[in-house]
Amino acid sequence: MTPELKAAIAALLAPSTDEGKEPLTAEDVVAFGMWVPASLHVALAELLKAHGFTLYVTVVASHWPGEKPSRRNPDPPPEHFQVATVLRNPTRGASTTFSWRVRLEPGQPLDTLFALFAGADWQEREQYDLVGVHFAGHPDLRRLMMPDDWEGHPLRRDYAIDTPHFPWR
């Protein structure tokens, strides 16, 4: 990652820093696992694409059900989803990836990256199908793997592995 790109990402993300926290600087930008507000998801992808991260790698949604407070974890986070996006810089000799994460409340949609990367079409459909994250502005958000009349989203943590389904089993 070039210093210019780090500075550009910091400038994009700094205004959204929570009150009372130090604003984001170029040193805080890391190539893996930065938390980004959902409103800047598309803007960050656009910035990265302009800086050479032109290869769409993958999108990974995961579900975190709310837990009951316990002695070990007195203040557990409420139910939420996490969507991680990975892009690759296909430079000859030094190819790197950049990945960031977005935290979503249940039912909150995330803007689609389809306008920037054609591959987001099927990848976001798959995540919608299996995890149930909605992508706003997606041209064709249908199920990809499961049958159209399937109920529920199998990769949610609260979806039991032996859930019965008529007429399959």
């Binding site: 769409y56 591959g119 990848q123």
Partner: peptide, 26 residues
């Protein structure tokens, strides 16, 4: 550009001019 957008880096991408091979580049 479509190969890049769809995330094709393998033989299909290389046949379309995407000069990327993780064995050499990463």
């Amino acid at each position: 550009h479509l190969a890049l957008g769809l995330g094709l880096g393998g033989p299909i991408g290389r046949a379309s001019g995407v000069d990327l091979d993780l064995r050499r580049d990463a």
